[in-house]
Nucleic acid binder design. Sequence first.
RNA 1: GGUCGCUUAGCUCAGCUGGUAGAGCGCUACGUUCACAUCGUAGAUGUCGCAGGUUCGAGUCCUGCAGCGACCACCA
Length: 939
Amino acid sequence: MSQELAPRLDPRAIEPERYRAWQDGGYFHVPASAVLEDGRDPYVIVIPPPNVTAVLHMGHGLNNTVQDVLIRWRRMQGRAAVWVPGTDHAGIATQNVVERQLGAEGLHRDDLGREKFVDRVWDFVNETGPVILDQLKAIGASCDWERTRFTLDPELSNAVREVFVHLYEKGLVYRGEYIINWCPRCLTALSNEEAEGQETAGSLWHLRYPLAQESWGAAETAYEAARAAAEEAAAGTDGTAAGHGAAAVGVGRFDDGRWYVTVSTTRPETMLGDTGVAVHPEDERYRALVGAEIELPLTGRRIPVVADEYVDPAFGAGMVKVTPAHDVNDFEIAGRTDLEILDVMNPDATMNDAVPTGFRGADRFEARKRVLAALEDDELLAGREEHTHSVPHCYRCDTVVEPRLSDQWFVRMKPLAEPALEAARDGTITFTPPHWKRVYEHWMENIRDWCISRQLWWGHRIPVWYCACGETIVTREDPDACPSCGATDLEQDPDVLDTWFSSQLWPFSVFGWPEKTDDLEAFYPGHAMVTAPEILFFWVARMIMMGYEFQGEAPFTQIYLHGTVRDAQGRKMSKSLGNGIDPLDVVNRFGADAMRYTIVSQCAVGTDISLDHEDVEAAFANGRNFANKIWNAGRFALLSLGDDPVRSAEDIEADLELEDRWILTRTAAAGRAATAALERFRLHEAAEGLYHFFWGEVCDWYLELVKGRLGSEVDPASREAARATLVAVLDRAFRLLHPIVPFVTSELWARLPWPEDTERPSDLIVAPWPDGSDGFEDLAAQETMAEVQALVSEVRRLRKEYGIPEGERIVVHVTGAPSELIAALSGQSVALERLARIGGVEPAPGEGIGAHAVLASGAELFVPLEGVIDIEREAGRLRDEVERVDKQLHATRGRLSNEKFTQNAPDEVVRKERDKAAQLEEQGAKLRDKLAGLEAGGS
RNA sequence: GGUCGCUUAGCUCAGCUGGUAGAGCGCUACGUUCACAUCGUAGAUGUCGCAGGUUCGAGUCCUGCAGCGACCACCA
């Protein structure tokens, strides 16, 4: 069978077949009975459900590889490991995609109407929805596919309904008028999290608002007070006042004697909706102005000056125009000071009938131009300055969000946040990396109510009905008639819920809640939550709150936040930048194992993954090479082992030789290290540790040492010990590597010969995890082996250094070595010959011309060179070398002793020259030593 | 504005509780010893951002500075 193995790993030839075998073998699925009846310890991860419309990208590759490593590892530990897959209906995102499709056909969603539009989205989703899940299979994701869920499945929609009604009945869901983030393109409200601030270079305009004539007296008083304050500040008696602001004079007088105040804004068009101007109540400058009347330009409306603590006296002139319908803070000021609320913009952000005729119908940016032009004509524009500030944009379509007064549904978050906050504080929930805990706490402590209604058609319809009689009906079952007046023509709220309202229920809705299911009992709560920090607030925090509210405990206890996938320039991979890498392309070219290893080996806690999209081959070379190395080591071992059964390593312990005892010891250590690393989510540490164990110890040393013992001409005891050890080591190594590189390890493991009296697990995927805790340990063998390795390395180095021909076998004299080492060396003649062409080891001092080296233990090596190399030639070469170095040294010293050089040349150059001199000196000394060694015994 | 993080070999980055600097890729030389050239052997390369401090000892702890980045926030 071993002949079938190709000399090069061809992932395409093994991976799909392997995956099918696992799936057909039912290894991914765990029934609830495994926990409830067989008493197995569950381990549960729910996938961060990708959007149904999504196509697999590297971010998914990272996220799901990490989850799969954890799940496979826990499964091997014997846990009832369940990884629940599924997709998210992704309200805005999906609706946008379908609307774009319609747009291409020249249609708008209104042309279809709600029902037909939703049908159309369903068609689209049913067609393309499962694509990303199939793609996950290609990277080896061992999800429990029988449990695949979609957030719009009937059961999950049922959970949404239950939660909404429950929270409503508890008073935690309410309807209210508030300033929300409105996307004029998507025509829907957004949550605060969905409105992303982007630093934008804009302008800050200073506007003059004329005061009504009866307020001119107050204006003059305020003017005097402000002037006085400004002078005092300018005097700067305490040195701080001048810079402290509050020095500006926000009151002034036109040439014709009328008075005005100065306000500033980044959105001048909103002035049409101003209903007041606010000053700080303790601002001495403007105290007289409170209660004054302003004649709002362009509108002819009169608006009052009010006092509110929100105003920062140090910013600008210390006066704020108040637009309650279009700014959160202004809305709140209005609430406190009883200002009128005047909505001047329509949903699509065009000016409405509340504004003067010249501005109606204009979109907000056009309105801005017109307002500015009009103000300028009236000499009301006091100035403009560059102003960079954060402007909220729609996270889906990147349109500038408009704050807008609106009637929406909200969730009162504070009460829900309390247990979720406590869980982080008391350590019930842990964060990796730990600093996210504080970020989480800070957000939870300052949590604000959550706007959950969306003016979309795709999503969970809000379960609220309105009756003409004024009754609002919120029920679990669709109502037939109004409970208060009996009317049957009820109207359901047209809005749907924020996508995250359903995904926050994911950890228990996937198990059938609100039904009391066995799955729920067996698999809730889960364990690890693996995701990106970006959705900590969107999703993770809310899942925790919902977990406490509806299940009484957190949905998971470990939050692992991995980094972001970036390109070689450190930019986030994204479709728009075109710097992405297609995971499936990587799988096709190099294999899933290569991709997984490359990702995991970079997956250090708290760091991003960087992959060069311009040189994909180089980016994944490490993983590809390693997978191939595993393949070839296995291929060689299988070829050498033959098909005969082996004995178990324990069974044959008395016959084990030094390298056997050493590699078994190292294998147990590798198991312990990998286990410790995985327990702490240190995936990169686990990967690199196993890489060096396998490549650097198993391949580079053990296989080389043991080669000579596998042939038929070898003493059977030694051969069987070697075979047993090799099988034991590879068995454990494949197990340890399996979570990271599942395909190549399984393929090889399945072909390993096996001890006849030992039961063989049905598949590597469920082979018990060798954590090394009860492993073989022989520290003396480890120590002796380290010396053997050091000796071989020294001899190899000396061979290179003296140019000893490849074919020349050399004799090595060892003195001052521990007796174990001498004994070991004498038993290693075949291996030493192979490893360093050592023809023999003499436990005696050497004589004559030769090369010396000292090992860590203090043992001294002597390699005779007489008759091995041409001494005279080597000496001649050395003399030339010495001469060359001396010449350079002389020149360097010359420069350094030249004062003109040392004084005039840049310090750095002089320093480099000094370093060079020191280096040359050292080099010369070494060469002379070596030369002396050669000349000592000879000529 | 607040909070947090980063600055280590040519590149991308590890380095957890302080003890003589690491990996991968790249680079140099040699190598067709029958698992692997997606390989082997040997090798070069770092005042660990700057300046102080604590310590017997600091890349690792503390302070300040500089540069970069992230997140949060209502400064009009």
